[in-house]
Design a protein around this nucleic acid. Structure first.
Length: 339
DNA sequence: AAAAACTACAACCGCCGTAAT
DNA sequence: CATTACGGCGGTTGTAGTTTT
């Protein structure tokens, strides 16, 4: 047996509030506090239900509500928190002083959602969309998404994690787009993905390009690892990019993962799990350990440490040219859109 | 100028968790 | 324990204002 709606009572007014009603509500709450919302309308002389009064007060009349457009920083916060929490508007609002959950919800639905879509980012999963028929049409949006890094640069620790993961995810999803559509798009060499040396370009890419200025760090970082990673160390030091790319284009990897696993969790539940895994430095390893029971798999020994150079590379200064260059290395034709 | 389409957002609806009885 | 009342939340709707045709 459920509770009957409080507004079913006869004769109670609904719809937009008048200035007179607002004044009555404000006067009453400033004088007596709101106390019981159910009892308030009668005491305040309002022909409304308590729920309607509470909503009007919390969403509109409360004195500490911030008015005006959302700042860029507020947008950043909303987007970051939404990627972690999903549609938990009240929780998001808790991090934005003066903003109500209703306001944030509306702003998301009318502005931010569209903004992300235009950038080629799925507003639900916060992953780049890969549902484009033409991969070339998707690439500019991926680059726009890469530029979106600047919107994801906040001070809160939890957001740093999400941002880092989002960046890595962008790169990975881009690889997926390139790797899974090459057969249908004439702009890509049919052999590109068959030859692992082509993914992320020729080995000279690492040697000659400044984008991987930290590329030397591959060996440097690996020097700090020990016995358990010797095999991978050898493999990566000999062919660093090929090692990573061959992992990603392995047939069994792609068969099992038409979509790459999420790096940024798609749900709050995943978010909690993800943060725990990150703390334990197991996430990346697990991400690549699709068959941990098979120690013979050369790819099963990747760890976050081994991939750290990739994370380092996708730094906050990542620009369109950075992404452009990466993609250019994988394409057999020049970049199709203007500088 | 008028109608249609679109946008923004305040407000409502229904469900849920919890406390009180 | 069952029922009821309440506050809170997220999804949805209604509507005024704006833009496009």
């Amino acid at each position: 047996m459920g509770r009957s709606p409080c507004c079913d009572e006869n004769g109670l007014k609904k719809g937009p509030w008048t200035q007179e009603e607002d004044e009555k509500l404000i006067d009453h709450i400033q004088t007596h506090g709101h106390g019981s919302w159910r009892a308030l309308p009668k005491q305040a002389g309002l022909n409304r239900c308590g729920k309607s009064c509470r909503l009007r007060w919390t969403n509109y009349l409360r004195p500490d509500i911030k008015r005006g457009n959302f700042t860029e920083e507020e947008e950043q916060t909303i987007i970051n928190l939404h990627s972690l929490l999903g549609n938990k508007w009240s929780s998001i609002a808790g991090n934005l002083p003066g903003r109500t959950d209703n306001e944030i919800k509306n702003y998301w639905n009318t502005h931010l959602r569209k903004k992300l879509l235009q950038m080629g980012i799925d507003p639900v999963t916060h992953r780049p969309r890969t549902d484009h028929l033409n991969v070339l049409a998707a690439l500019p949006q991926l680059i726009a998404a890469a530029n979106f890094n600047s919107l994801l640069n906040l001070n809160q620790n939890v957001q740093v994690d999400a941002t880092t993961l989002a960046k890595a995810q962008l790169l990975h999803t881009m690889i997926q787009v390139l790797g899974t559509n090459n057969n249908t798009n004439p702009s890509f060499s049919s052999s590109t993905m068959q030859n692992s040396s082509n993914l992320f370009g020729q080995s000279s890419y690492l040697e000659n390009q400044n984008h991987f200025g930290q590329s030397q760090n591959f060996s440097h970082i690996l020097e700090n690892n020990h016995d358990e990673h010797l095999m991978v160390k050898s493999q990566i030091m000999d062919h660093p990019l090929e090692s990573f790319s061959s992992l990603l284009i392995q047939p069994d990897f792609q068969d099992d993962h038409n979509s790459l696993p999420l790096l940024v969790p798609a749900s709050p539940e995943e978010s909690k799990q993800t943060q725990t895994m990150i703390k334990n430095k197991e996430y990346i390893a697990d991400y690549h350990h699709h068959d941990t029971a098979n120690p013979s798999s050369s790819n099963s020994t990747f760890t976050q440490d081994h991939l750290q150079p990739w994370f380092d590379t996708i730094d906050d200064g990542a620009s369109a040219s950075y992404w452009k260059d990466i993609i250019e290395q994988t394409c057999s034709e020049p970049w199709p859109f203007p500088e």
